[in-house]
Amino acid sequence: MIRFSHVHKSFARTGVALEDVSFQVNKGEFVFITGPSGAGKSTILKLCFFEERPTKGEVKVYGLSSAAYRNVDVPKLRRRLGIVFQDFRLLEDRNVEANVAFALEVTGAPPSQVGPRVSRLLAQVGLGAKATALPRELSGGEQQRVAIARALANDPVVLVADEPTGNLDERATRGIFQLFRDINASGTAVLMATHDLDLVRRAGCRTIEINRGQMVFDSASDGGFRPSAPAEAMEDDE
């Protein structure tokens, strides 16, 4: 599903962000990327949705390799991924329904299917009653649920989440995390960057730790690995 092979990433201004990072996320897996701020967690996620290219090494996501791809392939890949951010990234001037519909419309979904699909997605994230609310009228947790509904719009194979609970209180964090667990239980792999170690500890999912751009721990190979995905979904599909 996602494979990092000896990935290095440097930025002209800030220098080395990642050094020789290799790991693999299989279909249906739930994987945490942890580490302190500035460790390189967000860079890993950006490499996953091809927002960045590795300086060295190869990133392969759902069959698309960073070593050989055309720009036109990137939108197609992103339609197979769901992306969630700490700051929600909702369109402030559109209501909840329109924010979710937007993700379907940009992929050319038939207009007749957009409405019913949006209703189902909002019901799934528990926001069926707030379809016409504007983002600013919602709590942080609710806004994140809208962002998750949008991320799920195109039936992603992987949900990539960058500190999705970073702006939320504990109660909202629990709710959002449970939502991720439910999504994962239905077969969607989840790759979540977080520095909330309590959450990671409680969840008991596979954990990759990054520090100063280096992968210092992977519970899958260093012990303590407890698969979070359904057993039949653990094989790599690549």
Binding site: F49, N71, V72, P75, K76, L77, R78, R79, I83, R89, L90, L91, F102, A103, V106, T107, R150, A153, N154
Partner: peptide, 16 residues
Amino acid sequence: AREIAIMRLVGATNGF
């Protein structure tokens, strides 16, 4: 710019 960034994240092509 924000709207453009979001469009691209959800898989909109440059043409779109």
